[in-house]
Design a protein around this nucleic acid. Structure first.
Lengths: 191, 191
DNA sequence: TCACAATTAGGACAATTGCCCTAATTCGTC
DNA sequence: GACGAATTAGGGCAATTGTCCTAATTGTGA
């Protein structure tokens, strides 16, 4: 029990620190200090920093899967589910303005580092892509489902990046309004 | 002469390395090795790593200003100038797929580091924003010029991020086609 | 209560970091 | 050619990095 809890504490703390400060800039000492354990104890649970990163990516994958699954259950129409995705940028506005998109910034960093776990990090993005594609398929636009999915995903990354740069709340809201209107047009057309 | 050349060599090498590997991950030794000079010589030209970053950002600002100025001269209509901007993602496709957008990834990294030069890095983004705003104003849509500018800028960041993640050439080309079509619609409306 | 495994603590390591110093070399100018 | 300034080389610094080690402390089951 204690072990599992400690391990989970480490992963959670690393998740936050990797998000707010970046992976390579976060040190063993930083995580250990956040969890308030010794480095020795730390190394008992994870043999290397890369192993922690792997666990963090795994956790993020799980978290997003659960989030998408909850939307699958609560939201009735595929359009409203896509809208849930779109509005993450509003729900998480404060954090996005401070640290950007947790998925986009991590994949970008790991790609630059040419890190071994970059492919795994890309899976989070692919998870969103596949889920969005499914929603657009259910919406009726089978031929363009993947294109639309990439379009929405790309949109979210752009909004996140500019939100982080300019910290303009009205920009985010306006962009959300526009893409939702675009989504409704598609929904209309496929009736 | 030799001094100026050496200094320029350092800045150029740092520019490349900061782009391909990130700022914090690039060390003094990396840059010195790229330029093939001793660390002592290195330190003669720059007192600290932050000073190099400052010079690199300054150089990037200059480069972009020149690029925009060249478009101002060569392209005849504001619409075709905006199209020049849009098509950077195609012109620089290979590098973008490997390292993302040089502007977006740097601002994201410096924001996470809470680095003193983050505001200066944001100026590069603001430079594009202001230039795009001017183009949309000349296009006739005075009231929505800044909104459109942010929209195009946001679009470019999203495309760059996803291009880096999925390395999908057709995605980039499709997105360019779509935004150009959107641009033409605006151009049409304001006649 | 005892033995044994799981967990934690903390010291130590080689390597790397950004940074600083002094001595040598090159350069332009008289 | 000689002189002073500009430039370069390279050693060395303290601090931090990720990693590893051993000893102490827990908890658990017999």
């Amino acid at each position: 029990m204690a072990a599992k809890t400690t391990r989970r504490q480490i992963v959670d703390a690393a998740d936050d620190l990797f998000y707010s400060g970046g992976f390579s800039q976060t040190s063993f000492a930083d995580i250990a200090a956040a969890v308030k354990i010794s480095r020795g104890n730390f190394y008992y649970h994870f043999k290397s920093k890369d192993e922690i990163l792997d666990a963090v990516i795994g956790k993020r994958l799980d978290d997003r899967e659960k989030l998408l699954a909850s939307w699958d259950q609560t939201a009735e129409s595929p359009a409203s589910r896509i809208e849930c995705f779109i509005k993450i940028v509003i729900v998480n506005q404060a954090k996005i303005m401070a640290y950007g998109c947790p998925v986009g910034t991590l994949t970008a960093e790991l790609t630059k580092l040419d890190h071994a776990s970059k492919e795994k990090a890309n899976k989070i993005m692919a998870l969103f892509r596949d889920w969005l594609t499914r929603q657009f398929e259910e919406l009726g636009c089978v031929d363009f489902a993947d294109e639309h999915a990439l379009h929405v995903l790309s949109w979210s990354q752009g909004v996140a990046t500019l939100a982080q740069t300019f910290k303009d709340e009205t920009f985010v809201q306006r962009e959300v309004r526009q893409i939702v209107s675009w989504l409704n047009d598609i929904d209309q057309d496929t009736l």
